[in-house]
Write a protein that binds this DNA or RNA. Structure first.
Lengths: 227, 227
DNA sequence: CTATAATCGTGTCAGAATTACACCATTTGG
DNA sequence: CCAAATGGTGTAATTCTGACACGATTATAG
């Protein structure tokens, strides 16, 4: 808290929300095409100014809803980027968040005229500002958290099969996992429970459906899921 | 990045730096006594406004130097607190950092008239603003990082004995560690190396001195030191 | 000078956790 | 009804973790 009496700089303050989803066997993120300079035509992480009397979390949640129409989504603060030169128009400090949206939630492509699109992280278009840094940072954090907490479920619909869950982990981590070991660990971690229903795949036996047990989060945080 | 054209709110932006040290077998933090309302007389985390053309990291480093006279200190961004009501005078968003200063560095008590003091985290005085939250958050992060990375060395002088290192870990984690297991793990992690010198303690055999291998940090981050 | 008390440094073993690995049963579609 | 894809299951070898004790060294007090 300031003790000096110098006039404070009052930078513009934005939140940027890195929104992840799983689609087409890839991890994708939502980007917005800029219609004005600077970086006209390049793609940016969706975000906007923090309003008066609005907390940072609330601003991020509002942005997320504006872009996707979704509420009740997993959202966490990532990092704050404040390099004086990161926006050529002047000082803009941004608090970056990342959000995970369940695969099924057909996030609509934004409710305003702006051009928006989902891009796989492995094949990003030309990115504006320092947003490539932010995306990389978000991906690192996602992978990291995936190993230690139950965050992976947030990218799946409320009911899913173990094969789907494993596929989600493999996509995000970028490496194959052993089926039997995966199942053992996930089940021993006690973070999911069978719904009792089954899903008929295209071919082969029916797969048991599971759901996430939200009350289990706290317990898991301490112990690595995938060492 | 903002797409809407609404006038941005421009909150005051500060950095607050939670500064930790080890002293008297305790983990201590540097606090500043407030001389003016609000929270006059209560203790706050040292911090101040971010200057024009100054990055957030640079601002934190500057604050750290102003308070302690120290440079080249371990410093990392912690979290950004932006609740609209966190400062009764108006909107102040603060980017919190935490710093670890080596035990020997006799941080001077600040270079201006303000009253500053080191307080053990287990016995804090009356705290201003939401700074108690920030301190708790910083402690949680410190403990967490201690288990996964080689951060603990930052609280010791450049050369130290294994007993001193173990004591540091025990103080921060708040629990005793087994001597032989501790030594095995630390040495196998390959993050420290013997200097070849020895220190004569008050009594007993001479203890080998070790130094931290800064190039080892990257390797360690992946693997838990103390599971 | 000697006795005492504190500290340094070291190894093993049991139990737990992790990894690697293969096959049969079921279901759908041709 | 046959083929092809997928679901589900167990074990053995290895590695990791945690518990545990004592002899050698040095400073200090008497």
């Amino acid at each position: 808290m300031p003790r000096n009496r110098a006039a404070p700089e009052r930078p513009a303050l934005t939140v940027d929300v890195v929104i992840f989803r799983l689609a087409d066997e890839r991890l994708e993120t939502l980007l917005v095409r800029r219609g004005f300079p600077p970086f006209k035509g390049r793609w940016a992480i969706p975000g906007g100014f923090v309003h008066k009397n609005e907390s940072l979390d609330a601003a991020a949640r509002r942005e997320l809803k504006e872009e996707t129409g979704l509420e009740g989504i997993y959202l966490e603060q990532l990092y704050t980027f404040g390099d004086p030169k990161r926006d050529p128009r002047g000082r803009v400090v941004t608090v970056a968040y990342f959000a995970l949206i369940p695969g099924t939630a057909a996030a609509r492509a934004g409710d305003d005229a702006a051009e928006v699109g989902w891009y796989p992280l492995i094949k990003l278009p030309e990115i504006a500002f320092d947003h490539k840094n932010i995306l990389q940072y978000a991906l690192r954090r996602l992978r990291y958290k995936l190993e230690y907490s139950a965050i992976g479920f947030q990218l799946l619909p409320s009911e899913f099969t173990l094969a789907e869950l494993q596929a989600a982990y493999e996509i995000i981590l970028g490496e194959p996992l052993d089926k039997r070991n995966f199942r053992r660990r996930i089940l021993e971690a006690d973070v999911i429970e069978a719904t009792g229903d089954y899903r008929s795949g295209t071919v082969g036996p029916r797969a048991a459906l599971y759901r996430y047990r939200p009350d289990a989060v706290a317990e898991v945080k301490a112990r690595r899921l995938f060492p």
